[in-house]
């Protein structure tokens, strides 16, 4: 299997704290890869680097797209250096104003958040329509006059939104405010919203946090469907070990910003370094 996403020696420091230290990993296409590790290991920081919310200070993040490779770090623009001259600096400045995180999302990386970030005052179906913004007819005049092209594009988006609502079982709540949904439904809606941008890779940040056992089971079914039915690659951070072990093809263990183990669930479970990181070791 080819790898869809490749991290090459990613490093990120916050002041004196090394949050990520030369993290390298590969995510195979059409796989479910889990990132686990104790609290503060740098899992969410790694996610923020991949999805463009932080800019990795060293290393490359390569997304394989058909025959083309995109460096997600380079998409975020560079810092302006005086030695480069004013023209290049200006170009970087303008890029910095308009470029950024959303370009990473457009190149096919979707994500959900640890603390759910839905558009709470808007309705459930509107949340899914916003995610399809890029695929819609955004011409102002066409919208004001309700031209056929505009109507068609809206109808297509609406059909897709309802398709996803049926998948996550929220069809009946389509027109109620997203903020009024139960916690489990909000989690599922956020996944559906991320899927509506047609991603190649979806990054789920603790999708099972706060769910009851039944909801967790439904979630594992949904995540497997994302891979098998919709052919997206799933990268997931999760603390629920039974969920992680049951769904993942590949597991990466982080501790103190470094990769300490990677492999299949079986291999990782047996790895003494992983046990040490989670349970501590005896003083020798």
């Amino acid at each position: 299997m080819t790898s869809l996403l490749k991290l090459e020696a990613i490093s990120l420091r916050f002041g004196g704290i090394i949050a990520l230290n030369k993290v390298s990993l590969a995510v195979a296409e059409n796989s479910i890869t889990a990132i686990i590790g104790p609290n503060g290991a740098g899992k969410t920081t790694l996610f923020n680097c991949i999805t463009g919310f932080y800019r990795a200070q060293e290393g490359r993040i390569l997304l394989q797209k058909e025959q083309k490779q995109t460096d997600l770090v380079a998409l975020l623009g560079g810092s302006i250096k005086f030695s480069e001259g004013p023209l290049k600096g200006l170009r970087k400045f303008i890029y910095g104003l308009f470029g950024g995180t959303h370009l990473v999302a457009r190149s096919g990386v979707a994500r959900t958040f640890q603390n759910i970030r839905l558009f709470a005052e808007m309705t459930v179906v509107e949340n899914l329509l916003i995610a399809q913004h890029r695929q819609l007819n955004r011409n102002l005049l066409a919208g004001f006059l309700n031209l056929p092209g505009y109507r068609k594009s809206e109808a297509r988006a609406l059909a897709k939104a309802y398709e996803w609502l049926d998948i996550i079982g929220l069809g009946a709540l389509a027109n109620s405010p997203a903020g009024a949904l139960s916690y489990g439904n909000q989690r599922r809606l956020e996944i559906a919203r991320a899927m509506c941008i047609n991603p190649r890779l979806i990054c789920l940040d603790e999708p099972a946090a706060g769910l009851n056992p039944r909801e967790t089971d439904e979630l594992s079914v949904l995540i497997k469907r994302l891979r098998d039915e919709f052919h997206v690659t799933v990268l997931v951070i999760e603390h629920d070990m039974s969920l992680v072990m049951s769904i993942s093809d590949h597991i990466v263990v982080l501790n103190y910003g470094e990769v300490i183990a990677k492999g299949s669930p079986k291999e990782v479970q047996a790895d003494p370094r992983v046990l040490a990181a989670y349970l501590g070791t005896d003083e020798e």
């Binding site: 999805t51 463009g52 919310f53 308009f98 950024g100 995180t101 959303h102 370009l103 999302a105 457009r106 979707a110 994500r111 958040f113 970030r117 839905l118 558009f119 709470a120 005052e121 808007m122 509107e126 329509l129 916003i130 995610a131 913004h133 890029r134 819609l136 007819n137 955004r138 102002l140 919208g143 004001f144 919203r193 991320a194 941008i197």
Partner: peptide, 23 residues
């Protein structure tokens, strides 16, 4: 319309907007 929805989404959560590819 898409643009009006994008404005309202921006009011609700700017970070989520960026994660969905909205400029």
């Amino acid at each position: 319309m898409p643009i009006g929805r994008a404005w309202e989404a921006l009011r609700e959560d700017e970070i989520a907007c960026r994660s969905l590819g909205l400029n």
